[in-house]
C-alpha cells in the first residue's frame, strides 16, 4: 500500500514539474509537428500506404526517444539523491514509467491527429490502428525509461541512449509496424492478435525485468 501512495505522489510531482515548465510537452509537440511538416513539404502526398506507416513510426520513435530520455537524464544528481533517500526505488521507476506512458499516449494521439490531417489519410481500421499507437507509446515508454536510467548512470547521455535503445526497441518496432499495417489494410482483427499478445508480453517482460534491476542501478 505504501508503494501505491509513493507512486501516486511521485507521478503528481512529475506532472507538476512538467506543468510549470511545459518543456517536454511543447518540445515534443513542436518536434513532431515540424517533422511532419518537413515530410509534407518533401513528399507532398504519400500514395503508398506502407511509406505512410513507416514514416509515422519513424517520427514516433525519435519523438519518444527525445521525450522519454529526459526522464532520468534531466534530473540533477542532488535531486536524484533526495528522492532516493525518501522513497523506494521501485516507486521511482514505476512513477517515471506511468508518467511517461501518460505523456507519450497523449502526444502520440495528438501527433496522429496532425499526421492524418496533413496527409489526408485515415487508416482502414482506425480502432485497431489506435490500439497499435497506444501499445506503441506504452512499449516505447517502458523500455526507454529503463534505458535512460542506464544511460544517465553511465554519464554521457544522449549518444549512449540512442546506441543502447535501438537494438532493444527493434523487435517492438517490427511488431508495431506489422500490427499497424494490418490495421491499414483493414484485415480481420483476429489476424492481429498474435502481434498484440507479443507486444503485451514484451511489455510485461520489460517492466518486470526493470523492476528487478533498478534497485541495483540506483545505488551508487
Amino acid at each position: 500500500m505504501q508503494l501505491a501512495t509513493q507512486v501516486k505522489e511521485l507521478v503528481r510531482k512529475e506532472m507538476i514539474l512538467e506543468w510549470r515548465s511545459k518543456y517536454a510537452i511543447n518540445g515534443i509537440l513542436l518536434y513532431v509537428v515540424s517533422t511532419v511538416f518537413v515530410c509534407f513539404l518533401s513528399f507532398v502526398s504519400i500514395p503508398d500506404k506502407i511509406t505512410w506507416n513507416a514514416l509515422f513510426w519513424i517520427i514516433m520513435l525519435f519523438g519518444s526517444i527525445n521525450g522519454v530520455s529526459r526522464s532520468f537524464l534531466q534530473e540533477s544528481r542532488g535531486q536524484q539523491l533526495y528522492s532516493y533517500f525518501l522513497t523506494s526505488p521501485a516507486a521511482i521507476l514505476l512513477s517515471k514509467m506511468i508518467y511517461n506512458v501518460a505523456l507519450m499516449m497523449f502526444l502520440t494521439l495528438v501527433a496522429l491527429g496532425f499526421y492524418t490531417l496533413v496527409f489526408h489519410y485515415v487508416p482502414g481500421d482506425l480502432l485497431m490502428f489506435l490500439v497499435a499507437v497506444l501499445l506503441g507509446s506504452l512499449s516505447f515508454s517502458t523500455i526507454f525509461t529503463m534505458v535512460s536510467a542506464i544511460a544517465s548512470k553511465a554519464g554521457n547521455g544522449g549518444m549512449l541512449m540512442a546506441i543502447l535503445s535501438f537494438p532493444v526497441i527493434v523487435p517492438v518496432l517490427i511488431m508495431l509496424i506489422k500490427l499497424a499495417k494490418n490495421a491499414i489494410d483493414g484485415l480481420d482483427r483476429a489476424v492481429s492478435m498474435d502481434e498484440v499478445s507479443i507486444l503485451v508480453v514484451i511489455n510485461v517482460l520489460a517492466v518486470s525485468v526493470s523492476l528487478l534491476l533498478f534497485p541495483y542501478l540506483y545505488r551508487d
Partner: peptide
C-alpha cells in the same frame, strides 16, 4: 544491468 535487460529481448 544492460546485459540482463537485453537478454530477454
Amino acid at each position: 544491468i544492460y546485459n540482463i535487460f537485453a537478454f530477454p529481448m
